[in-house]
Design a binder for these strands. Structure first.
Ligand SMILES: Nc1ncnc2c1ncn2[C@@H]1O[C@H](COP(=O)(O)OP(=O)(O)OP(=O)(O)O)[C@@H](O)[C@H]1O
Length: 685
DNA sequence: GCAAGGCTGATTTTT
DNA sequence: TCAGCCTTGC
């Protein structure tokens, strides 16, 4: 039996209400995630089988954390619970019911750069190439998919779905072309994981009924960030038994650009009749100083749901607000403070450094490295999206299945084999005519090549065939295949030849060399987790994974965490730095002119503040490198919304004058000095 | 018809 | 800084 005596009465009620629909609406740090975890534990105590339970989280990191907490709470049968993101849950369903979902069972998951390639190809088909920006098109298609719209019916359904676009009929056309490309290349994209699952559940009652029988209880964390397509899946799966519990906070809705809508919370109550609404009010995370600041900021938003939020935790610890000359200075200041915190007994993992945009990580990394501090950057440009890694993986996939078009087009002329645009067109034409894969076109010599190109392509075909001949059965085969690919296709020479910058060349060669071992490591993890090796799943995992580092380090992690505010949702740290709090960054320049978007940016600031348990350090720079130019920066408008008490302003900070009286400032400075002395004393003891 | 090298414009947030 | 795109030379 799990011990639920430590819960407060509202939490207790939420945990013990296990049948029927319930919605927990509560502010930051009130124990929403804790309620989910304990509720699952309680359900298992009540005899519900772990395999019947599905818990959705928003990020992979949150899923891992919840799984760990569950296992420590209920023991090893916690392993049977389906805890994951919507995407990972859905792709499992699609793999299992591929045929019912009208998918080739060997489909794979396209990463962001694959998606962009396919959009480019779609645009080229119509000669629209150059007229539109592929990433703009992609995000418009993505929004349509999140609203559960498909090209065939989107014009009629757009209005009802409250879907808006600057040019719907144009979007319909590119969306259709893009879908054709996906299908042709036998891939699905991120949004398809959700969309195709919703569609198969809608269209195939046999699939729906089977899943309804297997999964009887649903829990969703961060429900405010659920989009329409995801809500539909919940509606379908949980709609029969109505055992569903969602937790959320409208003030932490920060993913509207991914289709999350405020109305989702209200819609839930309409879909699941008789929803029990539970509110949690006590924050167990932050000191009252921090909570007061957070409340002061967020109260400037309009149309909020009514919530009370208080904390027992009294603190002498002030929030600090610091201004530095530029982003480098800001980063060095943060690194210095981190160093001091470690001296005071804080562990690296107690510290989180948060920012608006991934690009801000760079200067922070430099500064932390200078002080030899252990850190990890979460998110950011993915290791898998790097060219040399994508090339390698394409060869790898081609060796698993030579008819894989997506991979074929990617590598047929990498390294250069004398195959250019014209030859590619001829291959594609032939492939269409004969209804065979482009690789098969080459095998059958259906396209005449001459001289060097002929030799090189002949060798390519032979090499791919000889790799695809032997199956990958054991984990060691992964490494072996990887090594042989690099050798057979001359990937090292390709890098040596194409990279002019020496440093970059070295780095790329080194990461290439590590790839075979790396892919083996991922295979090992998979076998450890589920006892067997499945390569399709392994490739899915690679694309969905949030570990962009390309390292597979195991064991307890103890490092300073660097991440965007978006990625920090649901997490907490004893000490938090929020940096770059400037207009045009937070709120971001693309959002600053639209009041609704500014509100979302304010929620982002609110999320950032409420990640901190005890120490909160805010900072901004007066000058920053952006667009590869020095730019003058202004402190964020949100800083004026901080309370006058509890926030200490750095002496260097002149530009913000809401701290009025001179005496006030002297007092604060005295306090600050004494604390500084303490921290120095601590730092070197 | 192909490959190499210069030019330009882009960095919001994630699965 | 870097990658995609376009021009030029072979
Ligand atoms: N009843 C309780 N007693 C002691 N500590 C608690 C209690 N409830 C929650 N906490 C602690 O409060 C902190 C915040 O909890 P949790 O992360 O579940 O909040 P949350 O509502 O999910 O936050 P967020 O809105 O930021 O996602 C955690 O450290 C948790 O252990």
């Amino acid at each position: 039996m799990i011990d639920i005596s430590g819960l407060n009465s509202q939490q207790h009620e939420a945990v013990t209400t296990i049948s029927g629909p319930s919605m927990i609406l509560a502010g930051a740090g009130t124990g929403k995630t804790r309620v989910i975890t304990y509720r699952i534990g309680h359900m298992i105590d009540q005899g519900i089988q772990p395999e019947q339970i599905v818990a959705m989280t928003f990020t992979n990191k949150a899923a891992r954390e919840m799984k760990e907490r569950l296992i420590s709470l209920v023991g090893s049968h916690g392993k049977g619970i389906m805890v994951g993101t919507f995407h990972s849950f859905c792709i499992k369903i699609l793999r299992r019911f591929a045929e019912e979902a009208d998918l080739d069972p060997r489909f794979s998951l396209a990463g962001t750069s694959d998606q962009l390639d396919l959009v480019r190809r779609s645009l080229e088909e119509k000669g629209w190439h150059g007229l539109y920006k592929p990433d703009d098109i992609l995000s418009r298609i993505s929004r349509a998919k999140n609203a559960l719209l498909i090209p065939e019916t989107m014009l009629e359904e757009a209005l009802q779905a409250k879907f808006e676009d600057e040019d719907l009929s144009f979007l319909k056309e590119v969306y259709q072309l893009y879908e054709r490309q996906l299908k042709l290349n036998r891939v699905i994209d991120f949004d398809d994981c959700i969309l195709k699952t919703a569609l198969v559940l809608r269209r195939r009652s046999d699939v729906l009924e089977r899943l309804q029988g297997e999964y009887t209880h649903f829990l969703v964390d961060e429900f405010q960030d659920t989009n329409f397509a995801q809500l539909s899946i919940l509606e379908l799966l949980a709609g029969k038994l109505n055992n569903i519990c969602v937790v959320g906070d409208d003030d932490q809705s920060i993913y509207s650009w991914r289709g999350a809508m405020v109305e989702t919370l209200d819609r839930f109550e309409n879909i699941f009749k008789g929803t029990k609404l539970i509110k949690l009010e006590q924050n167990y995370r932050c000191t009252n100083v921090i909570l007061n600041a957070a409340n002061n900021v967020i109260k400037n938003n309009q149309g909020r749901k009514d919530k009370t939020l208080w904390s027992k935790s009294q603190s002498e610890e002030y929030i600090t607000l610091t201004s530095k000359r530029d982003d480098g200075e800001e980063a060095r200041w943060i690194a210095q403070k981190c160093f001091g915190l470690l001296g005071q007994g804080y562990r690296p993992k107690d510290i989180g450094i948060l920012y608006r945009a991934n690009s801000q990580a760079r200067s922070l990394e430099t500064a932390l490295r200078e002080r030899n501090l252990v850190y990890k950057v979460y998110g950011g440009s993915s290791f898998f999206e790097r060219k040399e890694v994508r090339d390698f993986l394409a060869y790898f996939k081609l060796s698993l299945d030579p008819h894989d078009r997506m991979s074929f087009w990617r590598v047929i002329n990498t390294p250069s084999r004398g195959v250019g645009l014209k030859t590619l067109e001829r291959i594609e034409e032939r492939s269409k005519e004969l209804k065979i894969s482009p690789f098969e076109v080459l095998v059958r010599n259906e396209v005449k090549l001459v001289g060097k190109a002929n030799d090189a392509v002949g060798q390519f075909v032979k090499d791919v065939q000889s790799q695809s001949k032997w199956p990958i059965i054991h984990i060691d085969d992964l490494e072996k295949r990887g090594g042989e690919i690099i050798k057979a296709f001359g990937l090292e020479d390709d890098i040596r030849q194409k990279t002019s910058h020496e440093g970059a060349k070295k780095r790329k060669l080194e990461s290439l060399k590590k790839l075979p071992e790396w892919i083996k490591g991922i295979g090992e993890n998979q076998v450890e987790e589920r006892g067997s090796l499945n390569i399709l799943d392994l490739l899915d995992q690679l694309t969905l994974s949030d570990d962009k580092s390309g390292k597979n380090d195991k064991g307890p992690e103890n490092h300073i965490s660097l991440m965007t505010i978006h990625a920090s949702k649901g997490l907490e740290f004893p000490a938090v730095f929020v940096c770059g709090i400037e207009d045009d960054l937070l709120p971001h320049k693309n959002s600053i002119d639209c009041p609704m978007s500014v509100q979302e940016e304010r929620r982002l600031f609110y999320v950032a503040i409420t990640r901190a348990k005890v120490k909160l350090h805010l900072s901004f720079a007066r000058e920053r490198f952006s667009n590869f130019q020095k730019q003058d920066r202004k402190p964020s408008r949100f800083l004026k919304e901080l309370p006058k008490t509890g926030v200490v302003t750095d002496t260097e900070l002149q530009s913000l004058n809401h701290l009025t009286s001179e005496q006030d400032r002297r007092e604060r400075n005295a306090k600050r000095l004494s604390r500084l002395r303490d921290s120095i004393k601590g730092g070197f003891s």
